[in-house]
Design a protein around this nucleic acid. Sequence first.
DNA 1: CGGAACTATATAGCATGCTATATATGCTGC
DNA 2: GCAGCATATATAGCATGCTATATAGTTCCG
Lengths: 146, 146
Amino acid sequence: MNFNRFDSAGFVINWCARVFERRMAEALRPLGLAPAYLPPLLTLAATGGATQGELAKAVAIQQPTMALTLRRMERDGLVMRVPDKADQRRAIVRLTPKAEELVPRVEGLARSINEAAFEGLPDDAPAQLIDLLHRAAHNLERPEKG
Amino acid sequence: MNFNRFDSAGFVINWCARVFERRMAEALRPLGLAPAYLPPLLTLAATGGATQGELAKAVAIQQPTMALTLRRMERDGLVMRVPDKADQRRAIVRLTPKAEELVPRVEGLARSINEAAFEGLPDDAPAQLIDLLHRAAHNLERPEKG
DNA sequence: CGGAACTATATAGCATGCTATATATGCTGC
DNA sequence: GCAGCATATATAGCATGCTATATAGTTCCG
């Protein structure tokens, strides 16, 4: 059992993503939040409101996935949907006051986990990592529509 | 909707992992394989056989997750379980001939996707990325028993 | 030997993500 | 104005991952 796959980029990225998410889940649990809530939560905090489709695009998630995440967030009292009278297909998603109160603590948690990840690494490690991942992801995005 | 989260390490890692996995799923589909099969498949190809627990440890996945993945792989005719007579709790998981035939093609696919990810990047980008992710993941692994 | 502690695997229940497809509403050109 | 296309959201069905817990077999100790 000496064999291991920890020298393959694809594998290590997946592994690291899972470690990150687990850590985040753990930190967010006491606040009643799940890690998948974070991107829409922070996006809504910054924009004040957005449709489901806009949110999905902003955080690079498919629309059906965002639909489910928002449903859970609604169930947990974090967002509400304000129907758009001008276009009855749409609804503007907004944070509840409860969610808005949580935002600063959530941002603090996210920051501290990011910092913990880079502890003992050079100052430019975060920027470097993010840059490399960005380029790799762009390289792998579906080729059609360049 | 100018706001975006693509400058947070946690977010970008998650995003990149999903892009990677989607691409892998797409490439493996014609072979009748799923991306989660890859780590156990290649581990078994290298070792000749392992128990479920050994596999889970080797690829950094929880045991219940590995149990389900192996069940799907068995369903798809890729692995078989050879009961261990000396210890009836255990079974040695082995690749079927069908799976063994696929291994070279799978390795080729995995390699070419990894290469595509780093296209246009400096030669040391893969090593650098893997190193950074390794350190980050280790930093975030549960502290107890660290 | 027999029960307690340990180990290997299985199951339950849930979250998160995907693709494919349905539904409901809006828009456009005849 | 309405048929047909476009857009927004919802649903179905599945894979992958996690935690918590159950079950079954092994080991160890008195």
